[in-house]
Structures are given as structure tokens and as C-alpha cells.
């Protein structure tokens, strides 16, 4: 019994370490890749090819002055960054990295994911509200509206996958893709999921709630030091999570020939993360009304269409 618990704890710590390591290096990857996209070099001073840059960033953020503005609501001001990071980290409990590398495989994993990742919006909203600053508040409201609007088509796109694999457990979903990846069976669902994920992770072209030219830095305006770093880590952990989920739901997870499962999984995940950066380097930001129109007038009907067609095909054949 005790050995089992200990093993479980070791597993949790190991996966947590892997996730945080990936998150740290995702920031470096983003800066490097953006550099290459803009014919620059990116960070290359700290360590060989800039490989120690995340460590230097971490040390710098630790030693920054930790400020709490006077007019802020202190409790929620401190709680907000914690929520936005924890909500993402909780999700990794059900994210399998390979056939037997996961913390837990529950039969309602997808439902759990949807529930917990929606919590992240509280972090952003509370940060915006408790900062007591108009830019932060506007950033927070935008975030809430955007996340709620995009969660609906996102969930509807996932339902298509669930119908195909007849299970909510992510391990089963991946095993169901052994023969053919879901991206082939669900091309429309994949595109809807991809677009909504970009909106969920508040990445370009949907990074409306921290757009510098309108809102200073959105909900993060009043944050500094480690509190800011928590938001930052939360954001990149969210990107990592989103890359994992795209891989698991649509790109066949760890399935692939010759190479070991874990390697396949991480190759696919980092390809997805690269796509996030690629899109950021390419597209300009949406206007707010365009963002809402896209969600309610384009994505939602398409998601329903995708769901109905999938359901009919599964029932008929």
C-alpha cells in the first residue's frame, strides 16, 4: 500500500518535472524560432546556443522586486496567478505521454479536462478585476468573453472524436487511432479544434487580452516578479497542454512506426508547439468584433455540422 502510494508520488513528481522542463524550454524555443522567422538569431549569449537562457530568466525573475499595488484587492491579486498556473497543471494528471506513462487514466478524462481547463479563466478574470486598473479589467473581461465563446465549438469538436472512439478515456482515444489518425477522419473537426485552441491559449492571432497597443499588457499590467512569472509559466504550460491534446486527439498520440512511443509523442507535441510559434510569426491580431463573429457565426455552426455528420456516419455504417 505504502509502496504503491510512494510510486504514485514519484510518478507525479517525475511528470511534473518533465512538464515544467518542457515549459521552460518552450519559452526558449519560442524566442529562438521567432528569431529565425525574423532572420535574427534569437538568444545565444547564455550557454551554448542560448540553452541556459530559461535558467537565467528564472533567476532574474526571482530577484525582481515583488510588488503589490496599493489599490489592489490583495487576496485575489495573489490568488489569480496561482489559479491560472494550477488549472493548467491539474490537467496534466490525465494526459498520457505514452501507452503506460501517465499519472492516472480515468474513464471521464475528457470531461475532467474540459472542467479544469475552464478554471483558468478565473485566474485571468480575477487578475484583471483585483488589479483595480482599467486596462487590466478590460483585459480580464475580454478574456472571459473569449474563453467562454471558444469553449463551446472546442467541446463540440472534441465530441466528434469521442463518438469515433466511443470512450472518454484518453488512452482509449489514442488506441482507437492505431490504424488511422483522427485528423484523416475528422479534418473539419481538427481545424475547428485548432482554431479554438489558439483562442483558448490566448495566442496570436487571438491574443486580444494582452494586446500591448490597446491594453498595455492586459490583465498582467500590475504584476511583477514571480507573480508575473506564474502567469508566464501558466501561459506556456497551456500551450504545452494544448499541443499534447492536439497530438492525443487528432495526431494519433504516441502511435507511429519504428521509433519508441515516447519519442513519437514528443516529436508530435513539439511540432504542434512549433505551429503555435509559426502562426504567431505570421498573422496579425484579430479585431474584437471579428473574434466574436468568428466564434459564434463560423466556428459554432461548423462544429455542429461536423458533429451531426460524424454522428450520422457512425450510426449508419
Amino acid at each position: 500500500m505504502i509502496v504503491e502510494i510512494l510510486l504514485q508520488i514519484i510518478k507525479i513528481i517525475a511528470i511534473f518535472a518533465v512538464v515544467m522542463g518542457c515549459v521552460a524550454y518552450l519559452t526558449l524555443m519560442e524566442r529562438k524560432c521567432l528569431g529565425f522567422f525574423q532572420i535574427r538569431l534569437g538568444p545565444n549569449r547564455v550557454g551554448p546556443w542560448g540553452l541556459l537562457q530559461p535558467v537565467a530568466d528564472g533567476i532574474k525573475l526571482f530577484f525582481k522586486e515583488d510588488m503589490t499595488v496599493l489599490h489592489a484587492n490583495k487576496f485575489y491579486f495573489i490568488l489569480a496567478p496561482v489559479i491560472s498556473l494550477v488549472a493548467v497543471l491539474f490537467c496534466f494528471a490525465v494526459v498520457p505521454f505514452a501507452g503506460n506513462v501517465y499519472i492516472i487514466d480515468i474513464p471521464v478524462a475528457v470531461l475532467y479536462l474540459m472542467a479544469i481547463s475552464s478554471m483558468g479563466v478565473y485566474g485571468v478574470l480575477l487578475a484583471g478585476w483585483s488589479s483595480n486598473n482599467k486596462y487590466s479589467a478590460m483585459g480580464g473581461y475580454r478574456a472571459t468573453a473569449q474563453m467562454i465563446s471558444y469553449e463551446i465549438p472546442l467541446a463540440l469538436a472534441i465530441v466528434g472524436v469521442l463518438i469515433l472512439s466511443r470512450s472518454m478515456s484518453i488512452v482509449d482515444i489514442v488506441n482507437a487511432q492505431k490504424g488511422m489518425w483522427n485528423i484523416v477522419k475528422q479534418p473539419l473537426g481538427f481545424i475547428i479544434y485548432l482554431v479554438c485552441t489558439f483562442a483558448e491559449t490566448n495566442r496570436c492571432p487571438f491574443d486580444l487580452y494582452e494586446c500591448e497597443n490597446e491594453l498595455v499588457a492586459g490583465y498582467q499590467t500590475e504584476y511583477s516578479s514571480m507573480k508575473f512569472a506564474l502567469f508566464y509559466m501558466g501561459e506556456y504550460a497551456h500551450i504545452f497542454l494544448a499541443s499534447c491534446l492536439i497530438t492525443l486527439f487528432y495526431l494519433g498520440g504516441w502511435n507511429g512506426p519504428v521509433l519508441p512511443a515516447l519519442l513519437w509523442f514528443f516529436m508530435k507535441v513539439f511540432f504542434c508547439a512549433f505551429c503555435f510559434i509559426w502562426v504567431r510569426a505570421t498573422y496579425p491580431r484579430f479585431r474584437y468584433d471579428q473574434l466574436m463573429n468568428l466564434s459564434w457565426k463560423v466556428m459554432l455552426p461548423l462544429a455542429f455540422l461536423n458533429l451531426i455528420v460524424t454522428a450520422i456516419i457512425v450510426v449508419m455504417f
Binding site: F36, F37, Q38, I39, R40, L41, W278, A281, T282
Partner: peptide
């Protein structure tokens, strides 16, 4: 943008 990714850096 992908084409630019593989261009030589001018830094």
C-alpha cells in the same frame, strides 16, 4: 514566413 525561417540570419 517558413521561407524566412530557413534563410540565413542577418544578425
Amino acid at each position: 514566413t517558413l521561407k524566412h525561417f530557413f534563410r540565413r540570419s542577418i544578425t
